[in-house]
């Protein structure tokens, strides 16, 4: 009888715990799911939350600020228990972030920038990442020669990377930037990058010693252009930032001109956001047990031929 009672109480406790877990609801907003990095963060967070038995509402702001704000309003009205935002806009949508805080809905952002209305922002240090990529490229060029760059000013992370490239250029006067193209369009950006870089490669034929791209998606297009022109690996080193399966495949490919990337752990950041909410909101641990400041920094790793094997899926 005693055993039966213990088993019954245990089962009831388990059921209650499962019910509580099932009752927990998290809203996840990705600013633009058509961007691979945004989708990687959001999908990883959604998968981690579902693995905990949470109810997940996954939203896509489609790169539109008003829609971003509307979705925030809707999640607050829905009375979700927490919100995770991937590459969001806490400053631009400050009224909605403040409303979440006022209503007691905890918000964790990923790669969005700090805000007084969120618990913290999970980030890699973009300044460090930008410096690492630029210095690696300069090293491959022997700190001399000409480079061209493919930039993107519309995103804070890629903009910082570009600014770090400028700083490294200022300190290393033997390297000249003889051409740069800034991606203007966001929806048909691949076509934009292809057209811009094609023009730069043609204009500066025979004078280019290195190429810098602000994110890996741009680097794939440049790599294909260089290969189509018969450029061999190492002749014009190409360096970028982000990481991912396709990037690692190219870095390992002896025919590819893409030599290195700085790997940003997008999936890891999404999962970390869920873990942080689990600790702080569900298990009621103090925020300081996760991080005391406005940022929770994650490590970014430089990936090149020397270590790419450990990143390639078996």
């Amino acid at each position: 009888m005693k055993r039966f009672l213990i088993a019954a109480v245990g089962a009831a406790a388990l059921a209650l715990s499962a019910a509580q877990a099932a009752a927990f609801e998290v809203g996840i907003i990705a600013f633009q799911m058509s961007s691979e990095t945004h989708a990687r963060v959001a999908n990883a967070a959604a998968a981690a939350a579902k693995a905990k038995g949470w109810t997940v509402t996954l939203l896509n702001s489609e790169g539109a600020l008003p829609k971003h704000a509307e979705q925030f309003d809707a999640l607050i009205a829905k009375k979700v228990d927490a919100i995770i935002v991937a590459m969001g806009k806490p400053i631009e949508a400050e009224a909605q972030f403040k409303a979440a805080r006022d209503k007691g809905v905890p918000v964790v952002t990923v790669m969005s920038g700090a805000s007084k209305d969120t618990l913290f922002d999970i980030q890699v240090n973009e300044y460090k990442v930008g410096a690492e990529a630029a210095l690696y490229l300069f090293g491959q060029m022997g700190y001399t020669g000409n480079l061209i760059s493919q930039r993107f000013e519309g995103n804070v992370g890629t903009r910082i990377r570009g600014r770090l490239l400028d700083d490294v250029l200022v300190e290393n006067q033997a390297v000249k930037e003889i051409g740069k193209h800034s991606m203007a369009r966001t929806q048909s950006w691949r076509d934009d990058v292809r057209a811009g870089m094609q023009a730069l490669l043609l204009k500066n034929q025979g004078q280019i010693n290195g190429v810098w791209a602000s994110f890996d998606g741009q680097a794939y297009i440049i790599d294909d252009l260089l290969k189509a022109q018969g450029v061999k690996r190492g002749a014009i080193p190409l360096v970028s930032i982000d990481g991912g399966e396709e990037t690692y495949r190219r870095i390992a490919d002896p025919d590819s001109t893409l030599l290195a990337t700085v790997m940003i752990p997008f999936e890891g950041m999404g999962e970390r956001a869920v873990e942080a909410i689990d600790s702080i909101v569900v298990k009621k641990q103090p925020k300081e047990s996760v991080t005391s400041g406005p940022y929770l920094f994650q490590d970014a790793v430089l990936v090149d031929a020397s270590n790419v094997k450990q990143f390639l899926k078996k």
Partner: peptide, 13 residues
Amino acid sequence: SLSSAAPGMAGDY
């Protein structure tokens, strides 16, 4: 409403 102004901000409409 958004206390911000960005290029393309009304594109979704």
